[in-house]
Amino acid sequence: MAASKGFFTDTTLCIGCKACEVACKQWNQLPDDGFLFSGMSYDNTVHLGGSTWRHVAFVERPVPLNTQTDGAFSWLFSSDVCKHCARAGCLESCPTGAIIRTEFGSVYVQPDVCNGCGYCIVSCPFGVINRREEDGRAWKCTLCYDRLRDDLVPACAKACPTESIQFGDLDELRAHAKERVEQLHERGMPEAYLYGASADDQPGTEGLNAFFLLVDKPEVYNLPPDPVAPAKKVKDAWLAAGAAAAGMALAAVGAVFFGGHRA
């Protein structure tokens, strides 16, 4: 198995350009999500979904950042993405085995296996994964699984003009992220912290393979303060797993007959 890979999204370097959103759509050949003016700052994508796997949040705040030497206002940007959780709710709930953990430690939905049952959708504590209306299957960020196979950086990280999205070996990313937080603290930004960088930070997911550096509460960025994979909530995990396994077998049979040839 290769070293686990992931994203470190440093929101203090983001300029909100949305290159990540488009580079992702380009590489993965994703359709648009409709043309709706949201009235929410410059965010017309609004959330991650079946055909939007990177989403930049725009937060207008009536308080300045400590690095701004004047003003009473700040505008935060954060490029959201699937977190590829260590305990992934979607994967644990998938009855068909369509969702797998790859050799890169990422969580991948196999489109030729997914039957669109939707269990994963309700099991994601972040609301990342979703079905695409036109084909019924569940889709989300693949961490550019196909690119990783050929040693290419994921499309979003490659395009990002300001290195807000950093891709690499998780161990290195975590070490670097820690240093970055310390550096920002030294520069007078004590509010900087890591979101989901480790199991200690976020027991409910046991840590994220795509983690973030934030400067305000998670809710401000529309991230849950305390996400928990549903299976973790069940006292007897083994029992839960057994039930899931039975469900999987049933669903798998169904999938053979109803899943169709969609890939």
Binding site: K18, E21, D32, T45
Partner: peptide, 22 residues
């Protein structure tokens, strides 16, 4: 950022149009 000048190279593209649709 999401569009280009008078739109000839952006308003016809779904990937850019959805980002600033109106």
């Amino acid at each position: 950022t999401e569009h280009h000048t008078a739109g000839g190279m952006s308003r016809w593209l779904s990937w850019l149009s959805e980002l600033q649709p109106e």
